[in-house]
Computed example of a mutant assay.
Amino acid sequence: MFDVVAIGAGMAGLICARQLRLAGYSVAVVEKSRGPGGRVATRRVHGTRADHGARYLEPQGDAVQALIDVLVDRQILQLWTDSVGEFRQGEILSIPSSCYVAPAGMNAVGKYIAEGLDVWYGRRVKAISRTESEMWHLALEVTDDNLELPQELIARAVVVAIPAPQALMFLDTELGFSSDFLDKLRSVEYDACITVMAGYPAAKQQDLSNLNPQWKSVAFPDDADLGWIGLDSSKRLDSQQPVFVVHSSGDFADRHLESVDLPTVGQQLLDRASEHLIPWLNQPEWLQVHRWRYAFCRNPLPVSCLVAQETLPLVCAGDLCGEGQIEAALRSGVAAAVWVDSQLQDLPLDFSVNS
């Protein structure tokens, strides 16, 4: 039995769990994947790493700035570039922007916040219910091979820090949630994204040196297919080959999200990238493709967190609340921690990510 269970080990769930754990509550985090960070994600591919989720951290507000400062001090993050490109009408415009990355992979951010937390990986919440003693009961579904942990949890309070459509799979009126609360969750919409990780022969490293591109990051705000391209291998300290990461536009992702042939979909994006940037981008040595069904929240709710009234303590948090993606997720996670604390013991909270 725990005081609090956080569902989802993304930025909101982790920062909320961290604040409550530091205050003295017993906290468990349930995460369906194998690691922390949510969309701040890294994949091991062909002897290297590629950031296939969040591209970098940039100062969006006080919450992200504080996290950047701590992670730079701990040598987890370093400055990647002080300008980003925008492709408009056939030209790349340079825009000042301080972008910080983790040479070990952007998932190092989630790993740092998760330090000291009890995170149950490979578990998806299948259903929640109320016990006779007025506690939350969570039934868990195994998503990994690890069968050692129990497949149920009991908690006094629940923080739901996953995309709204996933939360609605186990939140319904039968549990006492108001129609207003559920309607607000149903109103939240997301843009999908298809990400391609592509590696090229080591010999192309010399081509890159000769080209000496002045960009590491290029956004495509007006393209029907492309959303963003980054030279991911420039983040690594020991890169042996060029690696690019390409993000699709939302429209492209909608058209191909259910495709059963993702390599062909990924090749289409590389073909498009080669037309705009470097001709050999359509000739990868290898490629991998990842679908992000809930990549960007399109219409977040104008609240710091969404509280379920007239039930046992339960609150929704994440980038579905407030503006600013990672900034919004961090702020929402902290707001959820404050609310949960007010419903339990009202212990003093430490809002520093440096703790």
Rank of each mutant, 00 (worst) to 15 (best):
L270H: 05
L277M: 06
Q268V: 04
S259D: 12
P279D: 13
F244I: 11
L281R: 01
G230R: 00
E258Y: 11
P279Y: 13
S234Q: 13
D238H: 13
A253H: 08
R272Q: 12
L237N: 14
D254T: 08
V265E: 03
A273E: 01
P279T: 10
R255P: 01
W280A: 03
L269I: 06
G266K: 02
E258C: 06
L231S: 13
D271V: 07
R236P: 00
D238N: 13
I229N: 00
H276D: 05
L262F: 15
L257S: 07
V245Y: 11
W280I: 06
V243H: 11
D254P: 00
R236W: 03
D254G: 03
H276T: 10
I229H: 00
E275T: 10
D232Q: 09
S234Y: 15
P263G: 07
E258V: 05
L277D: 02
V260G: 05
S259P: 04
W228S: 07
F244A: 05
S248A: 09
S274Q: 05
D251S: 15
T264N: 14
L262T: 04
I278K: 00
L262Y: 15
E258W: 05
G250L: 00
L231V: 14
L231R: 14
S233V: 00
Q267G: 03
S274A: 15
V246Y: 04
W280E: 07
L262P: 07
Q241V: 03
S239K: 11
G266C: 03
D261Y: 07
V243A: 04
L257K: 05
H256S: 02
A273W: 02
S248I: 01
L270G: 03
S239W: 14
F244K: 01
T264V: 01
T264Y: 06
L231H: 14
R272H: 08
R272L: 06
K235P: 09
G266D: 02
L237Y: 13
D261Q: 12
D238Q: 12
H247F: 15
Q267V: 01
P279Q: 08
P279G: 04
Q268K: 09
L257V: 03
